[in-house]
Lab assay of single mutants.
Amino acid sequence: PEDEKKAKEALKRANGDEDKAKEILRKLGVDPDRAEELLRRLR
């Protein structure tokens, strides 16, 4: 869904750096736990 698209985009923008991607997602208003879960799934 929408969050998943955001997560993929964030990872791309962060050049695969998960911590940076998490930060980006947090700024986009995605719940930190949700962000973590999404990134884990994309790994």
Score class of each variant (00 low, 15 high):
Asp19Trp: 09
Ala7Glu: 02
Arg41Pro: 02
Glu4Val: 15
Lys8Tyr: 09
Asp3His: 06
Gly16Tyr: 11
Asp3Gly: 07
Glu36Asp: 12
Asp3Gln: 08
Glu9Arg: 07
Ala14His: 03
Glu18Ile: 15
Ile24Pro: 00
Arg26Ala: 13
Arg34Ala: 11
Lys12Trp: 07
Leu39Val: 08
Ala21Gly: 02
Ala14Glu: 03
Asp3Trp: 14
Lys6Met: 15
Gly29Met: 02
Asp31Gln: 09
Glu2Asn: 11
Glu18Pro: 12
Arg34Gly: 04
Ala7Thr: 06
Glu36Pro: 00
Lys8Asn: 07
Ala35Ser: 06
Leu11Lys: 03
Arg41Ile: 08
Ile24Met: 08
Glu18Gln: 09
Leu38Lys: 00
Asn15Trp: 09
Leu25Arg: 00
Arg43Glu: 13
Glu4Arg: 09
Leu42Lys: 02
Lys20Asn: 06
Asp17Glu: 05
Arg13Tyr: 10
Glu9Gln: 08
Ala35Ile: 15
Ala14Leu: 02
Ala7Ser: 03
Asp3Asn: 07
Arg41Phe: 07
Glu18Ser: 08
Ala35Asn: 01
Lys5Pro: 06
Lys27Thr: 12
Gly29Tyr: 00
Arg26Glu: 14
Leu11Val: 05
Ala21Met: 04
Arg43His: 11
Asp17Phe: 05
Glu9Thr: 06
Ile24Asp: 05
Asn15Arg: 11
Lys22Val: 08
Lys27Gly: 13
Lys6Gln: 12
Arg34Val: 15
Lys27Arg: 12
Arg13His: 11
Arg41Trp: 09
Lys12Asn: 10
Leu39Ser: 00
Ala21Phe: 07
Ala10His: 02
Asp33Glu: 14
Ala14Tyr: 04
Lys5Asp: 11
Ile24Ala: 05
Arg13Asp: 11
Arg41Asp: 15
Glu37Asn: 05
Glu18Lys: 11
Gly16Ile: 02
Lys12Asp: 11
Leu28Met: 15
Leu25Glu: 00
Arg13Glu: 15
Lys27Asp: 13
Asp33Arg: 12
Arg43Gln: 14
Arg40Glu: 15
Leu11Gly: 01
Glu37Gly: 04
Asp3Pro: 04
Glu18Trp: 15
Asp19Leu: 13
Arg13Ala: 15
Asp31Tyr: 05
Ala7Gln: 02
Pro32Glu: 13
Arg41Glu: 14
Arg26Val: 15
Lys20Ser: 07
Glu23Leu: 05
Gly16Thr: 02
Ala21Asn: 00
Asn15Ser: 08
Ala21Pro: 00
Ala21Arg: 00
Glu37Ala: 05
Ala14Ile: 02
Glu36Ala: 07
Leu42Trp: 03
Lys5His: 12
Ala10Trp: 00
Ala35Leu: 08
Lys8Glu: 09
Glu4His: 10
Ala21Gln: 02
Leu39Asp: 02
Lys27Phe: 08
Glu23Val: 07
Lys5Gly: 08
Arg34Thr: 13
Leu42His: 04
Pro1Ala: 14
Gly16Arg: 04
Val30Met: 15
Glu9Lys: 06
Asp17Ala: 04
Glu23Gly: 06
Asp19Cys: 12
